[in-house]
Each structure stands twice: as C-alpha cells, then as structure tokens.
C-alpha cells in the first residue's frame, strides 16, 4: 500500500508542477483559472492520499470545503473576463420572467 501511495503522490506532484507551468505561462487569465481548478482537484486527491495513508479523518472537512468552493475562483474570473452584460440586465417585463420561473 505504501509503495502505491508513494507512486500516486509522485504522479500528483508532477501534475501539480505541470499545472504551475500552465498557470505561469497561460496566455489569458481563463487559462490560469482552468489550471487552478485542476490544481484544486489535484489537492483534493492529495489530501485523499493522506487520509488513506494515515487513516485519520480529521482532514475530510477540508475536502468538503475544497470541493464546494473550488469553483468560486473560476466563476468570478469568468464573470469578469467575458464582456457580457450583467445577469440582472433582463429587459423583459416582469410577468414574463415570473412565468419562466414557474
């Protein structure tokens, strides 16, 4: 088990290094945010390895938080990188919007 975990950790380490390369190179901010997203997934996997190795579960809430809020960075970057108007800019009459929500 330990050997497998070491190999997996090495692969994750290489993956994280490659993602850092992309984050540094990334021509646009969206490339960087995609790389950051994958880095969060790699972090989740790495903490999973730690839990599988030590069999201590105190780090599980960290995984929950990372999985739930890893998106915030990408979403906010995407929101400001696109040249779209505000989502609130819905010019239709209110009744129509209300009908859509039903």
């Amino acid at each position: 088990m330990t050997i497998v975990l070491v190999i997996a950790a090495a692969m994750l380490l290489v993956a994280a290094a490659l993602l850092l390369v992309r984050m540094t190179l990334g021509p646009t901010i969206l490339d960087r945010s995609v790389a950051l997203d994958v880095l969060v997934a790699v972090t989740v996997s790495t903490i999973g390895l730690l839990i599988a190795h030590t069999r201590v579960t105190y780090a599980l809430p960290v995984l929950v938080v990372l999985a739930a809020f890893g998106m915030v960075g990408a979403v906010s970057v995407a929101r400001y990188a696109s040249r779209s108007e505000d989502v609130d800019a819905d010019s239709r009459p209110d009744e129509q919007i209300e009908g859509d929500l039903r």
Partner: peptide
C-alpha cells in the same frame, strides 16, 4: 483506484500544458 485517479490527474495536467 487511487493509482488510477492519480494517473488521470497526471494525464490531465499533461493535457492542460
């Protein structure tokens, strides 16, 4: 499972680069 998951992450990182 863990090995496969780590391998997928590695391939994904290669792909991202």
């Amino acid at each position: 499972c863990i090995l496969l998951g780590a391998l997928l992450a590695l391939i994904a990182a290669i792909g991202v680069v």
